[in-house]
Structure formats: C-alpha cells, structure tokens
Design a binder for these strands. Structure first.
Lengths: 341, 341
DNA sequence: GTTGAGTTTGAAAGCGCTTTGAATGCACAG
DNA sequence: CTGTGCATTCAAAGCGCTTTCAAACTCAAC
C-alpha cells in the first residue's frame, strides 16, 4: 500500500492524505481522523526512500565503530548504541551501523556524506588529536563525539563523563584508606579517556603526597586477559601495589583473578576500584556491589548523545551542545584500609 | 555533486553517465573511462535514497536485536554484526540496526517491511517456537536466522553451530576423564541453543552411563554474576560437581571465581569446559588456552550469514540455504582427570 | 448580491536516480 | 545511393513521497 493507493481508497488527493498524516494544520479534523484510521487499517507507512528523497533528509543516523588494530571490539559500544537506538525509535530515525578499521574511517564518513545516507553521525572512541573531527566539520555533517579530543580546540558537540574527576576521587579514596602504592590499569593510550583518567590519578597522587610510579601504570585494551596479566606482574613484583584502579569491569575480572591467584583477598588484602559503565551483562550492583566503582551508565550516555545530535539537526544554528556527566562513586566490597604489617 | 551536475560537467546525458558508472555494456569504453574519472575527481556517489527509490531496492539489511526482559544485551551480537558488516561493506549494503524488546519485535519488523527500509533481515537470538519466523514469512521479507527454531518445521534460511554435537563431545570428554558429576551452566531456557546444548549434554551422560541430575543444571542469562552464583551454590552443596560445562566465556569467569573462592583450583581440582564464541575481547587463546573449549567464531558466522542473506536477495527462487558450523574442541588448562580420594 | 477572509482540497512540480524506447551516426552491403 | 545493422547516446517517464501554488468552497460583513 502506497500513498497513491491509499488516497484513491479514500477518494482524496495524495496531498491531503500526506498532510493529514504529517499533522499539517490545514486539514479538516474529520478528514484527518478518517485518513489516520485508514492508514492504520491498511498498515500504511510512507516509503522511507521516497520520503527521504522528497524531504532531503535521510531519516537516519550513522554510528561508525572503530575496529582497532588488535581487532578488539569494545563491548560498551553495544550498550551505548542500545541507548541511542531508544532515542531514535521514538523520533522516527533509523540507525545505520558501520564498522571501520581504526584510522581509515575517512572513507566511510565520506561515503555516508556523499550518498546522503545519514543526517548526522555519532563518533565513537575518540583518539588523541582525532582527525575525524576536522574531517566531519569539513563535510558539514552534524556529529556528536562520545568523549572528547584532548587537543582539538575547535567547537564541536560532545558528551563525556568527567573521567578526570572520577579517577581523581577514586585515587583520593584509596590514598585516604592508607594505600601508598596504587596501580592504574588503564585503557589504550590512543584513546582520549585514557589520558584524562591518568591525569586525574596523577593529580590525586600529587595532592596526597604520593609518588607517581610509571611501573604501576598499565595501558592496553580493556580486556580480561590484559587486566590479569598486568595485575599478575605487579603482584609478583618486589614492592607490589596494595590497591588497583581499573578502567573497566572486564579488566577488573582479570585483576580479581590475579589477586586470587596470588592467594590474596579482594578488599581485605588488596583494594580495587573500577570504572563501571553499568553494562547490562556486567552486574556490579546489589546492596554492596562486588567492586567499589565510579559508575556512569554508558547506555544513558547513548540516549543523551542521540538527543543532542537530533537537536543539532533540527536546529543547525544553535550553539553546539556539550555535556559532561559525573560518575557516581559507589562503595562496594573491594576496598578497605591498607593492611599494616 | 549529483548526477545532473556531473553529466552537465561532462556534456553527457544523465542516462549515459548512470550507465557508465553502473557498468552497462552499451557505453563506449572511452566514455566510460572519462565518466569514472570525473566521478572520482568530484567524489560523486549516487544519492542512496534516489537509487533506492528508482530501483525498488533498499540497499540495506536490518538487524533486529532482542532486548530481553532482564535487559541483558548479549555481547556476542556485536561480534556477529562486526562480521556481517564486513560482508555488507564489500557489497555496497548498509546495515540498519534496531533494538526491540523481546517479544515485541513484530512492530519493528512490520515497520521495516512497510517502509521498505531493508531488503532483508537477520534474526538474532531465536527462541523456542519463535513467532518471528511465520511473521517474516508472511511479510515476504527475506531473512536468515542466526540459530534455529526447535519446533518450527517450515523452510527457512539459517546458520547455526552444531550445539548438540559440541556439548555432546565436551560432556563425553569430561566423562572420559572420570568425572561423574558434571554441572551444566547453560543459557536462558527461552533461547533455542540452550535446549540443543542441554540435549547434547544429556545424550552424552546417558551414553556414558551417568545419571542426569536436574540439580546440576542451571539456566539463566550468560553473565558473570549468574555463572558465579550457580557455581558457588553447586560447590557448596553436599555432593558437588567435579566438572562444569559452561555456555559462555562470560559465565565461565564467574565459575572460575567461585572455584577459587572455594579454595579449589581450576583444572587439577575442578574441570571446566566452556563454549567459546571467540570474542575479540574474551581472549582464550595461546598455546594452552586458559579454558578447554568448544570454539566457534561468531564473527565468522556473521560473515556467512550476511553472505547467505545477500544470496537469497539476489536469487529469490533458489532453495533457502542453511549452514551448520562445527565447533572445534580446544584442549586448554581447565580440564584434567577427576581427582581420586 | 458582492466581497474578502478563512478553511479545505487538489494538480503538478520536483527530489535524484534508473530504465524504456527512440534517435542518431556510422560502416558496410547491395 | 539506399538500406540495414550495430554502437552509442539521449529524452522522458517513473519510483513514492512532499510542497508550492492555485482553486474551490463557506460564511460573515457590507
């Protein structure tokens, strides 16, 4: 059933039917009702391609997921997209997903822009001095960055969590608990959040008079295996840390494993604070969650990012929105005062 | 730059330019070259909406991800989609992603069909007696199921791993190692793979003369927390299992945790075999992987599923393809003979 | 009875492509 | 020179919508 057939059914022109369905004011209320009724009855939906062509809007948002060199797909993308998708479906947008090898997203962006496949883009996994920002600015395609660039000083829309503050507070808490040697199991150095978290950690160390020790800081993809390996090495060292700050739930499972392997117990012997993206399958909740955490729902970030992007599209002349979300510090079972010997 | 402008530039008609770019034979070779050159120079790409409207094909595939009642998003979707996406990008298709609350995907499918947004659909997470199959058959939308229904006997395209055989073999291996009490940490009962895995497990028990014990079988979402809880309970019971068969890497991390908490060691004391989807962030590789596993790359399944779907679209009258992938049994460090007391 | 404003509807153009059917030009046979 | 076949090109229609502009109708005011 298309518009022509539907309007024929109703004995009306395509114009009127179209207007009725799109809530234009100049349609008689009774007519509109009749049209909407019929549309429902025949399960009529405007052809997406035709609408897009006629309006010049794609009715779709592009999400381009970077696949990094080690082929690790960050599972938080799924969760973020789940949030964004929620926004799109209420607003009648579709979500176009594209995976691109990290560093060669250009072709994908250019393609989406040239083919007019999307009205805007969510940029995932920003990297230090990310060339995607100037590229998209050049293409004139609205976008929202999930995260921030560290160096780019131009105006662009972003949503991020306050990584610095979260890691500052977490580090401070560990220091206040008496921990002197606090390890940082962080993400890939190319990711901008990594630098911010590190900087929050370093500031807190300095403020509490602790010495920063590069040998306590690890940077790699946030996998369980990497968390395990880093923590194992550290715990086997001469002067092992008594606390860990871990950038993801996934890595923390590896850290926990290493702690147990070293015949230590999580909490009493070794404190751990994780950053918790509140992933649906990574339960760290309950009255006393397993891990003390700085928590911020990445799904909510997805919802908000999508809303921001749609608002930019609807309102291209408004100033570009930015949003900084604070993480909540949640006290769980994995932290405690440093054991005195 | 659109077709009109490009053809004007070239002093040719839109017809000829279109044909040249789409490799129609009736274009002079020299002209074609000139056109392609110009298209590249001006970065011309046909407008996706217009092409779609003119050809009647959407140039897009829909992936509808079910979000279950506990809101757990299965992380393997990401990997599967990463695979599928690879296929699409080489074939010029786009991927439209949609999340839908489990059980109410109907509206999403109907919408995609009515709006002609996609040429086909990948059905994720098939459930027992899945009503999506007849629905899509009714809508006339080509689809490929990732998995199989257990009951539906009509013809449909699917790709699946041989869950029965994988779990049969894994169970058999554990039995051969002398284990008498083998626990099964399985997925949500509504998922069809759960039943198949269970049936492989039960068959192997029977064949090896072991008694099936319902109290050793757990069914729930494949999260770390669920794995931990199930294994903890089992290990604390009067007659605890000496081996575990675990449906996912994620659950296995919980099981491992429970084993360590019980002051047992993985491998020597308690054997564990997992099903390993070969997720990029769930490393279980190396010479001797941590876990003995039945392994099958879900990313490869995504690649193949997409290829199958595109072939159905290109060739609607051919018989519907199906594909059964075998999992590889990988011996890792988590299995060993049952300890004699 | 005419006018003008306001309400409601419709014809037709246009979005950017593909594709049909026709036209053009040219080589070559008769 | 005419006719035929082939290679190459083009004008125009059409895909299914939205939107402009014009038309028709109603009704109150003069």
């Amino acid at each position: 059933m298309n518009l022509k057939q539907l309007s024929h059914q109703l004995g009306l022109s395509q114009t009127t039917v179209s207007r009725a369905l799109n809530n234009y004011p100049e349609v008689n209320a009774a007519t509109r009702e009749r049209v909407k009724q019929a549309a429902k009855e025949f399960n009529y939906r405007p052809n997406a391609r035709a609408t897009g062509l006629a309006t010049g809007r794609a009715g779709a948002i592009g999400h381009v997921i970077p696949v990094n060199s080690s082929e690790v797909l960050n599972p938080i993308f799924t969760e973020f997209i789940a949030g964004a998708s929620q926004t799109y479906s209420t607003q009648g947008y579709e979500l176009i997903l594209s995976l691109a090898p990290e560093g060669s997203e250009d072709a994908v962006y250019r393609q989406l822009a040239a083919r007019k496949s999307v009205d805007g883009i969510i940029v995932h996994g920003p990297r230090v001095n990310d060339h995607r920002i100037p590229l998209l600015q050049g293409l004139g395609l609205p976008f929202v960055l999930h995260g921030r660039d560290t160096t780019n000083s131009t105006e662009y829309a972003w949503i991020d969590i306050n990584n610095r503050r979260a890691f500052f507070q977490a580090t401070k808490l560990l220091a206040d608990l008496g921990h002197k040697r606090i390890a940082l199991i962080n993400g890939d150095v190319a990711q901008t959040f990594t630098a911010r978290r590190r900087s929050g950690y370093l500031d807190a160390l300095q403020q509490t008079g602790l010495r920063a020790d590069e040998s306590l800081m690890f940077h790699s993809d946030l996998t369980e295996a990497n968390g395990y390996q880093a923590a194992s090495e550290l715990l086997a060292s001469e002067d092992p840390p008594t606390a860990f700050l871990v950038s993801s739930y996934m890595s923390a499972l590896g850290v926990r494993h290493a702690i147990h392997n070293a015949r230590l117990s999580l909490g009493p012997d070794v404190s751990v604070i994780i950053h918790d993206d509140d992933l649906s399958y990574g339960h760290n909740s309950g009255d006393i969650p397993q891990f003390t955490a700085t928590r911020s729902s990445v799904k909510d970030a997805g919802i908000l990012a999508a809303e921001m992007l749609l608002s930019i599209i609807d309102n291209p002349d408004a100033p570009l929105p930015t949003k900084l979300l604070e993480a909540n510090l949640i006290i769980g079972a994995s932290t405690g005062p440093r054991k005195q010997h």
